[in-house]
Computed example of a mutant assay.
Amino acid sequence: MRRAVFTAVLALLAFAGNALADNFPSHPITIIVPFSAGGPSDAMARIMAERMQRALGQTIMIENVTGAGGSLGVGRVVRAPADGYTVGFGHLGTNVANGAIYNLGYDLVTDLAPVVMLPSNPMIIVSKNAVPAKTLPELLAWLRAKPAPPIAGTAGAGSGSHIAGLYFENVTGIKLQYVPYRGTAPALNDLVAGQLDIIVDQTSNSISQVRAGTIRAYAVTSDKRVESASDIPTTDEAGLPGFHMTLWSGLWVPKGTPKEIITKLNGAAVEALNDAAVRKKLGDLGLDIPPKDQLSPEALGAWQKTEIAKWWPMIKAANVKID
């Protein structure tokens, strides 16, 4: 008797799950961006949302939930109902590095389900215009000669800009004094105002200010130049060989979200990434779109685990820890 009841309950749950997936989406979807409005993550999410809502037939709203290097926003997604209506935007910082830094209260791998890999971009080494250096070797010499540690802006502990700063320290031996912000958009504002010395920033965030002449760029952290900023050398060309870092992004949903719903969200995202207008907007920001074979949920999940294995040892060795 008990077995029959248990089987009936499982069947009922499966039916309810299938019905939920069949009707999805029946009302607006929210994408949680764990950084401030106006920053690179926010810009990419809004470009994607605008096109994805056409494929899904429902409005997609962006909600910026800032703080603690993006961990508050990711936590909001973890605790949301597993129905596909709350989607989390994340990247190398929020969905990899934060697990080695914060006492999160959730597991970045097992408490979230991957949806799709999103475009990535190399970081770019930029300084305030008051820095006299014109080339990367001159910048390194100027930073080393400062009597106090150079002031570097980040989007918080564990953010992409913070990881890039730690990597920069490891490669150059130059110690930085970090100033955390609730996103790289406000950090960039202070760099323009001359209150920071440098940021190792996302190219998509800084490139407009570089073009406007309000900050100075030295190199992109890639083995090839960025198409939209082909006049800026790579770190290999500029004199810091091997300093390569790409900040990749993705979409996740709470664990337990029906596979059929994840498939629908993935399909809408892939359709957006194949749209010529979307590709141009992303390209203008210096973003690289993943190859087709990397656009499945499984590919994002595998890549996240690979990146955890790569970056956690360096972060833990730097003793970056916030409880």
Score class of each variant (00 low, 15 high):
M1K: 15
R3E: 10
V9W: 12
L12V: 13
F15E: 08
G17P: 00
N18R: 15
A19K: 12
D22R: 15
D22G: 07
P25K: 12
P34A: 11
G38L: 14
G38K: 14
G38S: 12
A49G: 03
R51F: 01
Q53M: 13
A55S: 15
G57T: 08
T59N: 10
T59E: 14
E63S: 01
V65Y: 01
T66A: 10
T66S: 03
G67F: 10
G70T: 03
G70L: 01
S71T: 08
G75W: 08
R79M: 12
A80G: 09
A82L: 07
G84E: 06
V87T: 06
F89H: 05
G90F: 01
H91M: 10
H91N: 15
G93S: 01
G93T: 08
N98I: 08
Y102P: 04
T110Y: 06
P114M: 14
V115S: 11
L118I: 03
M123R: 10
I124R: 04
I125D: 00
I125T: 06
L139Y: 05
L143R: 10
A145M: 08
A152H: 09
T154A: 09
G156F: 07
G158F: 05
G160P: 04
A164R: 02
L166T: 01
K175L: 12
P180V: 10
P186S: 12
L191M: 11
V192A: 05
Q195V: 10
I198T: 13
D201Q: 02
G213D: 06
R216P: 02
V226T: 09
V226G: 05
E227M: 10
S230Y: 08
D236A: 13
D236E: 12
A238T: 03
A238F: 02
H244R: 14
L247K: 02
P258H: 09
I262R: 06
L265A: 11
E271A: 12
N274H: 15
N274F: 02
K281Y: 01
L282T: 08
L282A: 03
D288F: 07
P297I: 10
A299P: 00
A302Q: 14
P313E: 01
M314V: 07
A317E: 13
